[in-house]
Design a protein around this nucleic acid. Structure first.
Lengths: 130, 130
DNA sequence: AAAGTGCTACGGTCAAGACGTAAAGAACCG
DNA sequence: CGGTTCTTTACGTCTTGACCGTAGCACTTT
């Protein structure tokens, strides 16, 4: 997903008009239109303003955004990729869960092996899905 | 942590010189120096180039970066905020961990109460920090 | 048709991203 | 202590493109 698509998604899921975003951010309607059509890139400051308007952090706003060449399957955390390839354990794990699990990291550190990932998955599933 | 600090951290932990980054990215040494001293902000394209040089996604590069005013306490997930206020359980939880925990969500769903959050925290800590 | 709503085309401007050159620190060596 | 080399920073410049204002298009509703 491009950043432009992300912007449009966020606005649509709130059922906002460009006008609404413009008022929330102070940016102009034409410029917001340009952003959502990938005709320009925001500065980091503008990105921050937009994230704030959408009630989230820059980091969360960027989460589903793939920059050119990014997030190939190989870019999944080591161990998690292996878990997904496991015919038994990996089969049941949906892409929702992959997204959820892939976000887990502490100061750049992540679970290291298939077993740790699976253990976390089971534990989180019990909490989040009963 | 600012973006500038993040850049310097990434370079230092690799024991690289500005020269090395310059060669890996095609950016000039003076400009990289400016970036690491917070005298300028990169464009998204430049950010992508740097992330690539450091072998990670833009998203991962930005993970520890706080933009001005982000993630107010009130914006923390319910339950997690309560956990942090708990004088006993919440005291030991560092901001690193708050960042990590706050990212946990599956299709918008999150742990609901203090106890669930704490349980997840303990479990993740065992995996991530031995 | 006229008026309203929502988005886009187009040109212009000015801040700032990025660079080149040169100087300032470090560190080492004789 | 002067040289030499390696690394980082100061400074001035240029050019790009982020962002804006105005006007126009497409589509409804009255």
């Amino acid at each position: 997903m491009t950043l432009a698509e992300r912007f449009r998604e966020l606005r649509k899921e709130r059922d906002w008009r460009l006008k609404d975003v413009a008022e929330a951010t102070g940016l102009s309607i034409p410029y917001l239109s340009d952003l959502e059509r990938d005709r320009t890139n925001p500065s980091l400051e503008t990105l921050r303003t937009l994230a704030e308007a959408y009630g989230m952090t820059v980091h969360d706003l960027m989460a589903p955004v793939d920059f050119y060449g990014e997030r190939t399957p190989a870019a999944l955390p080591r161990g998690l990729a292996e878990l997904l390839e496991d015919p038994v354990l990996g089969a049941e794990i949906t892409s929702d869960w992959v997204e959820t699990l892939a976000r887990i990291e502490l100061r750049g550190k992540r679970p290291e092996n298939k077993r740790d990932w699976y253990e976390i998955y089971l534990h989180l599933r019990r909490v989040l899905e009963g």
